[in-house]
Design a protein around this nucleic acid. Structure first.
Lengths: 160, 160
DNA sequence: TCCATATAGTCAAGATACTTGACGACCTTT
DNA sequence: AAAGGTCGTCAAGTATCTTGACTATATGGA
């Protein structure tokens, strides 16, 4: 009946949202730490979320805003930071005077390569922990869910 | 070969971390929106993350700090906000003059009840989307992973 | 062609959610 | 009772994200 032990062994929430949140945060933290340890000190979880939407061959900034679940101003500020770090660059779109094309610098592409390696390492560790079968089932279920988020700054996002 | 269409159909990342992140963010957004719609306007995702660690019968603040993956000052500030909203209350620990016991007010317990209902609704929708079997496999794999995070402000968290 | 309207990006200001550092109050151990 | 650890707090700063207002460019009719 020791109170201290009680508190440490007390049951945590055990529903899908909680489990997803815990797993996601743990993965992000592990990945970001490994990236920073690999020499990419500019790497943060917020920036990672944005970079995930930027294909290797670049993307129009407006399309990036569409895909991200954050406001266009937030995207802009993150891009400002990434550009200042020399990870991405914004070039004028020759086909549209309003538009900017967001692409990686060579520094950015280097980071992507390290990121791919780290992802595989983490994945291997996960497979080791829960087995191939469970891991495959996890990916399968997550793909089937195919969740997507509305854009924060977009008032009409609810209308299908 | 329309560029616009290309950008919208271009493949997103498809690794475990990305999928977890997308699923987690979508769940959180859905849950928080439903909570606010249910009259709990004070509900935010950051606060939700903390409340998840507070059992119905309360917890010592120090234990809460232990469990959360954020600094003790962050926990404190979130508690300050929740206390100001009348959701939780901090009482002195009769057994330790330094310690505070964090517990729910009746308003907080009301929110927990609504939260439980909303969780089940979302879960039902997920099961409808991917089927019982996939959903069970998802929960099973996430439980097996049993991820946990180190505390941010704790320098010695790495030492086992 | 010219105007109305929509789209792309930016600038500015502010809120929220964190961080590190310093500190006072209390407990425990010797 | 003195030393050192734990618990909570105060203060200040940073990163991330929001809303609002604005400019420049494109588009689609009248």
């Amino acid at each position: 009946m020791v109170k201290e032990l009680d508190e440490r062994t007390k049951a945590l929430p055990d529903h899908i949202g909680w489990r997803l949140w815990q797993a996601s945060r743990a993965w992000q933290a592990e990945f970001a730490a490994a990236m920073r340890a690999a020499g990419h000190g500019w790497f943060t979880e917020a920036r990672a979320g944005l970079l995930g939407h930027i294909a290797r061959d670049g993307i129009r900034q407006a399309a990036l805003i569409d895909r991200s679940a954050i406001s266009k101003q937030a995207v802009q500020q993150l891009l400002d930071g990434l550009e200042a770090e020399g990870v991405v660059q914004r070039l004028p779109d020759p086909r549209d005077g309003r538009s900017k094309l967001v692409g990686y610098t060579s520094k950015g592409l280097d980071a992507l390569r390290d990121g791919d390696r780290i992802k595989l390492e983490i994945e291997r560790r996960y497979v080791g922990r829960i087995g191939h079968q469970r891991f495959a089932a996890l990916m399968d279920a997550l793909r089937a869910l195919d969740t997507h988020l509305p854009n924060a700054g977009d008032k009409d996002a609810e209308v299908p």
